[in-house]
Computed example of a mutant assay.
Amino acid sequence: MPTKTKLSAAALGGTADDTEAAFYEALQRGDIDALMACWSDDDEVFCVHPGGPRLVGTGAIRAAFEQMFANGAIHASPARVRKVESLASAVHNVLERIEVLTPEGARHAFVLATNVYHKTAEGWRMVAHHASPGTAQAPDDLDNTRQTLH
């Protein structure tokens, strides 16, 4: 069945939203082949997990997700998506709701992530995923926060 999953993810050509949905579905199933089918084959793709180093290239990204999947699937659901899109690129900023099972029961964390997609000959593919360190509660003012950068 992994071949069918990979083919369905690879056949995505509709929108960046379709690729994003396939990415989060693959995370929830712990399906490394489907997850990697969402990524561009470009050597310069990168991924930053919360508190982690920058991973460059599909080999490094695959290895990191394989290590994460060794502990089980990642139950992450995107919400509050903000988008900037053009004809050949899309940037999605999402609030990821992460569910972690502990001996005390299910716990939730919230992570802000930015996913960048490019339209390639194979369809829309992820070229960057950057996730912030998590918090125990979702920010109430996520859409209205204005901060000054120095």
Rank of each mutant, 00 (worst) to 15 (best):
M1H: 09
P2A: 07
P2V: 11
K4T: 13
K4N: 07
K4A: 07
T5Y: 04
K6Q: 13
K6N: 14
L7M: 10
S8E: 10
A9W: 04
A10N: 08
A10F: 02
A10M: 06
A10H: 05
A11T: 11
A11C: 15
A11G: 15
A11W: 14
L12K: 04
L12H: 03
G14M: 07
G14P: 04
T15P: 14
T15D: 15
A16T: 13
A16V: 06
A16R: 03
D17H: 04
D17V: 11
D18K: 04
T19E: 03
E20W: 08
E20A: 12
E20F: 09
A21Q: 03
A22P: 03
F23K: 01
F23T: 00
Y24L: 02
Y24A: 01
E25C: 07
A26D: 13
L27A: 01
L27R: 00
G30Q: 09
D31C: 07
D31L: 04
I32V: 10
I32W: 05
D33V: 12
D33Q: 15
D33M: 08
A34T: 00
L35E: 00
M36R: 10
M36P: 11
W39S: 00
W39T: 01
S40R: 05
D42H: 12
D43N: 14
D43K: 14
E44K: 04
E44N: 15
E44R: 12
V45L: 09
V45D: 08
V45F: 10
H49L: 15
P50S: 12
G51H: 10
G52P: 14
P53E: 11
P53K: 06
R54Y: 09
R54D: 03
R54N: 12
L55M: 10
L55Y: 14
L55C: 03
V56A: 09
V56E: 11
G57K: 10
T58W: 08
G59W: 06
G59E: 13
A60W: 14
A63P: 14
A64D: 05
A64R: 08
F65E: 01
F65H: 15
E66I: 11
E66V: 06
Q67D: 10
M68D: 15
F69G: 00
F69V: 01
A70N: 15
A70F: 06
A70H: 12
G72S: 05
A73V: 05
I74G: 12
H75N: 04
H75A: 00
H75P: 01
A76P: 02
A76Y: 00
S77G: 03
S77P: 03
S77F: 09
P78V: 12
R80L: 12
R80G: 04
R80D: 09
V84M: 01
S86K: 07
S89P: 11
S89C: 12
V91R: 09
V91G: 02
V91W: 02
H92D: 07
H92I: 14
H92Q: 10
H92M: 13
H92R: 10
H92S: 12
V94F: 10
L95V: 07
E96D: 08
R97S: 11
R97K: 02
E99V: 03
V100F: 07
T102P: 14
E104F: 08
E104M: 15
E104Y: 11
E104L: 14
E104A: 13
G105Y: 05
G105W: 01
G105P: 02
G105H: 00
